[in-house]
Design a protein around this nucleic acid. Structure first.
Lengths: 217, 217
DNA sequence: CGGTTAATTGAACGCATTCAACACGAGTGG
DNA sequence: CCACTCGTGTTGAATGCGTTCAATTAACCG
C-alpha cells in the first residue's frame, strides 16, 4: 500500500494549495469496509473525497448488466470531483478505506467559486488524460498489451520492487475490457516469459522492465 | 447512451453566455480545406475553436502507428478547449470548414479567469461523458452494437430522415476500434436486415428505429 | 479440516481480423 | 462517350485471438 505521497508529482489527481487547506479544515473522516459503496452511479456529485488509506475503485454498470471499472484510486488521490452535477461512475472501497469527505458547497463557501472550479479543472485534466489513454487501450490494443500496461502502471506506483494488487482478477478484467480467463492467461504467459513473477495471486514483481515497457508503451 | 451528441442536450459542448459573447467579439474566422490540420497532437492548447460550417474530426496516433479517432464535431460545437495545457488529440477538417478561433488568453482578458475556467469546465463535463460512453463502447460492445450505436447517434443529430455521413469508413473504424472491413460488413448486415438503408455509401436512412436503438442502447 | 470463493487451465467455438480479390464512383484524358 | 486510373468501399476465405463453457486447482476462512 502506498505510504507516502510524491509531492513532486504535480500532475496527479491530488489537491494542492487552497483545496488541500479546505480539505484539512472542512473534511470529515469517513471509513468504509471492503466492497462498501462510497457513492452510487448517477448520484448527486455534491460530495467528493480524498483517499487517506486504502484503495478505491470506480465502476459502472451498463443497462445489460455488463460492468466496467473506471479506475483505481490510491492514498492522496481525489475521488468524485466531477465536472458535471452527477457521479457518472459509482465508487466502492476496494480495501478497507479511510477517506476525507467534503461538500462542494462547503469548499465553495470557504475558498470561493473560482477556486473550486480551478480544483475541478485540475483534477479533471488528469482524469481526461487517463480516460483518453484508456480509450486507446481498449480500442487499439491486444489482451497482452492491456495486461502488460496494467501491471506496469501498478508497478510504477510503488517505489518497492514487490507490488501488491488490491484488486481481484474480475476487477482487472472489467477495467481492461477482457474476461477473467483471458487476464489470467496473459498473466501466466508473462510469467512464463519471466517478465513478471507472481509469488502469490495478489502480489508480483517485475523482472524485465524493458520488455514490459515495450509492450505497454 | 449518448455516443456523440444529443441535439436535445442543451448542456452540449456549446458556448453560452459570456463565452459566446467573447467568441463574437474576439474570434477570427478561419477556413480549412478537406483533411487540413487545425491543430496537431500535443500542440499547445492556447487556441480553441467553434465550428461554424463543416465537420471536424479529432484523432490521435499511437506510437506504433495505430490511429484512433476521438470524435466528430459539428456546427455549434466547441473544439480544442482542453482542461490541460496541451491538445491531446489532433483536429482536422473532415469537410471544408469554417471556424471561429480565439485565444484562451484573449478570452481570459476579456471575460476573466474564472469565466474561462467555467467555460472549460462546462465543455469538459460533456466531453467526459462522451469519453466514458466511448470507453464502455470500446470495452464492452460487439462490432454490430458499435456500428449500430454510431449510426444512431448520427441519425439523432439530423432532424431529417436522410443522414449524410461526412466521414469515410476508415474514420468510422478508427472511431469504433474496428477495421474498415468489419464496419463495412456490419453496415451491409444491418442493411440486409432492413434496419437501415444506404442509397449511397455516404448516405443512409433509418428504417427500424427501435431495432437500432435496441442494439445501440 | 471441510466449505467456499477466487484463480487457473483446457478445449471448442465464434467474432473480428487479415489478406486478397473485386466492384464502384469520380475525375481525367483520349 | 469510352477507357483508364485512383481512391474508396465491399466481399470472400482463412486465420487467430479472445471468449465461452467446463473442469481443476489454489487461496481463504470458519
Amino acid at each position: 500500500m502506498t505510504l507516502a505521497y510524491d509531492l513532486t508529482d504535480t500532475s496527479a489527481t491530488r489537491p494542492t494549495g487552497p483545496l488541500l487547506e479546505a480539505f484539512e479544515r472542512l473534511s470529515a473522516r469517513v471509513r468504509f469496509g471492503r466492497e462498501e459503496e462510497i457513492y452510487g452511479q448517477d448520484d448527486d456529485a455534491e460530495m467528493f473525497y480524498r483517499v487517506v488509506i486504502g484503495v478505491v475503485r470506480t465502476s459502472k454498470l451498463t443497462f445489460d448488466g455488463r460492468r466496467l471499472v473506471g479506475g483505481f484510486y490510491y492514498a492522496g488521490d481525489l475521488v468524485g470531483l466531477e465536472p458535471g452535477p452527477l457521479h457518472r461512475f459509482a465508487a466502492e472501497a476496494l480495501t478497507v478505506c479511510e477517506l476525507q469527505a467534503v461538500r462542494r458547497s462547503a469548499v465553495r463557501a470557504y475558498a470561493g467559486e473560482a477556486e473550486v472550479d480551478r480544483a475541478i479543472l485540475h483534477a479533471t485534466a488528469h482524469e481526461m488524460d487517463r480516460l483518453q489513454d484508456h480509450v486507446v487501450l481498449l480500442g487499439r490494443r491486444s489482451a497482452r498489451e492491456r495486461v502488460a500496461n496494467f501491471l506496469l502502471s501498478l508497478a510504477q506506483r510503488e517505489p518497492s520492487d514487490h507490488v501488491d494488487m488490491p484488486m481481484g482478477r474480475q476487477d482487472m478484467a472489467d477495467y481492461l475490457g477482457l474476461t477473467i480467463e483471458t487476464v489470467s492467461r496473459m498473466l501466466t504467459q508473462l510469467q512464463g516469459e519471466a517478465i513478471v513473477e507472481f509469488p502469490s495471486t495478489r502480489r508480483f514483481q517485475v523482472r524485465k522492465w524493458n520488455a514490459l515497457e515495450a509492450m505497454a508503451a
